[in-house]
Design a protein around this nucleic acid. Sequence first.
DNA 1: CCGCGGAGTGTTTTT
DNA 2: CACTCCGCGG
Length: 655
Amino acid sequence: MIDLKKYLNPSQYEAVTQTEGPVLVIAGAGSGKTRVIEYRVLYLVESGVDPKSILLLSFTRKAAREMVSRAERHDPRSKYIEGGTFHSFAYKALKKYAKNLGFTHSFSILDEGEAEEAINRCAVKLGFIDREKRFPRKDTLRNIISVSVNKHARINDIIKREYPHFLEYADDIETLRKKYTEYKINKNYMDYDDLLVYLKSLLEDPEIRDRISGRYKYIMVDEYQDTNALQGEVTYLLGESHKNVMVVGDDAQGIYGFRGATHENIMAFPRRFPHCKIIKLEENYRSTQTILDVANAVLLNMKNKYSKCLESMRKDIGEKPKLLFFKDAYEEAEWIAAKIKEFNDEGVALRDLGVLFRSAYISIPLQAELSKRNIPYQVVGGLRFYETAHVKDVMAHLKVILNPKDEIAWTRVLTLIRGIGAVISEKILQDIISHSSISDIVEKALPKHAAGHKYSLGLARLNKALESASDGKLTISDKYEIFLDYYSPIIRDKFDDWHLRVNDLDTLKQIIARYEALEEFLADFAIESPEKGVWRVNPSVAPIEPPITLSTIHSAKGLEWNVVFLMGLTDGVLPVSFALDDEDEIEEERRLFYVGITRAKDRLYLSMHHEGTRGGLYRFNKVSQFVDMSNVMAMLDIDNVSEPEEEEIDVFYDE
DNA sequence: CCGCGGAGTGTTTTT
DNA sequence: CACTCCGCGG
C-alpha cells in the first residue's frame, strides 16, 4: 500500500480513507477534489475492493472522462471501474432492464432536434398547430417540457415564470406533455430526460434497485453542484441500501442552473443521509495567490455564497492578472494569437495554454488568427458537428435500417428527396410503418410510390441504397459508404458550402470505423458523442504538437492550464444579454466568470473589445459588470485602457 | 403540394 | 447575420 499521506493533506486524506458511509466533500476550486477521487479509488482497490463495484458519475462527459482516466492511472486493476455521465450509466441500465418498463430492449434515443420533431408531431395530432397561430414553437415547447421534468416543476408554474405570454396555452401544453410521453413509449423512443426519468423508475423497483446496488457498492459523484433534482434522486436511490456514497461539489461553481441543476442538492445531501460526514477542502494547489485574489474578489460579490475564500498553497506570489482593452474583435484576437506564439516560442507547450469564452462564436476571429500563424488548436464546446444538418441527414439513414419504425428518421430521409415534402412523406410513411422489417419496406412499401411522380427517380435511388445497406454481411463502414454515396448529390444540391461540410462526413467515417455494431455506434453518438466543435475556420492545420484548447467556459469545468486567456468580457456576452433581467441568471453568469478565472495556474489574461456588431447594428461594448467592480479591478493590472469615444452610441444596454 | 424567396425574429451553456 | 416561418407561384 502506498503512503497516501505523502500525496494528500489531512482533509484530503480523510476524504480518501472514509470509504464507508455517506460523505459530502465541499471542495473549492483547485483544492484537489479530482485528486481525492483518484486516490480514493486507488485506496479502495488496494484494500481489496472489487473495482467493478466502484461507480463514478458526473454530469458532463468532460468531467466524467477526466475523473475516470485519472482514477485509472495508478493501478491496472482500476480500469475495471465503472464510470461516465449519468446519462450513459442510465443508458446501460436501461438496455438491461427496459423490458421491465414496457420498452423493448432496442429503444432509440432522440436528440434535441428529434425530440422537437416528435413534440411537433404530437402537437399537430392534437390540432394545436393549425388552430392557433400563436401557439409556442416546437423548441419552446420542448424546453418547457424538459424544464418541468428536470426541475420537478408544474408546467403551469414554468409558463407563469418564464413565458407568461403563453399562459393561455398552459393546459394545452400539459395535454401535449402527456401525449408526447405516450408517443415515445409507443414508438420506443427515449429523449435525454427520459434516460434519467426511467432510470429513476427502475431504481424505485426494490428488486432491481437491490440488484444494481448489490453490484455498485461504492459510488462517487463529481461536480455534484451541477446535478439536478432528478440526478439527486438517482444518487440517493443508488446509495440507499449501503450508504457508501461520496459526493463532491462547490456551490460557487454551479453553472448548469439553466437545465435544472441546483446547489440545493448539496445542501439536501446531509438531510437525506443524516450521519453524513462533511469534509471541506479549502487549500488551493492550482493557482498563484494573485490569481486567487481576483477569484476571491468575484466570490465576495456573489449574492448567495457558502464557500470560503481560496488560499494558495503555492510559494510563488505570481504576476498580477492583466486586463486588456481592444478596439475591435480583430485586435483582441490578434493580440492573443501573438501572445500565444510568444509563450510557445519561450518554450510553453501549446497544451498548457487555454483560451476560454462564454459562447463559441466569440472565438471565430481568434481561430482565423491562429490558422494564419499555423498554430494548431482544438475547439471544445458550442455547436457540435453531430448537430449539423448534413451529419444528421446521413445519420438518419443509418437509423432507419437499425430501427425501421423510427418515423422521425424516416421523415428526414424522405423529405431529402426533391419533390417530397411534409404531405407526401407522411403518405409514404404510413405505408412504411405498416411493415416491420426493412426488407419488406424495400420490397413492398417503397416500390408502390416509386413510379409516376417527379420524386419517383429519387425514391427509387433511395430504395436501392437501403436494399444494399440492409445486407447483414456488411460492416457499418460499408453501410455508411453506401449512404454517403447516395447522399453525395443531395448535399451538393442542398448546401452552398457543401465542400466544407464533406469534411465532417469524412471525420464521421473515421469514427464509425471503430465500431462493430450499428446500435452501439448510434447510442454512443447520442450520449457520448465526440465533442469536437464545428466552429473551426480551417480544419487542416498540420498538428506540430498537441494543440492549444479553445473552449467554452462550460466545457472547461474541472480542467486547468498554466496560462489562461479569458476573452470577450463584455456586458451582453458575459453576462449574456438574456440573463440581464433576472438576478438568479446574472449570479449564474458570475459563477461562470469565477470558473473561468480559477482554471489558471500561473498566468491569467482578461480581455474585451469595444467595437462590436450585433444583428447588423453597430454597438459599443462596455466591460463586463463582473470585472467593473472596484474590488475586482483592484486586483488587476490594467494595461491599456482606451476611453470610450464620445460619439459612440450604446445601442443595446440603456440604464 | 412542393419549394422558393422574402419577411421577421432572436442570437447561450449540456446530456 | 442566420435561421425559421409564411405566402405565393409553378
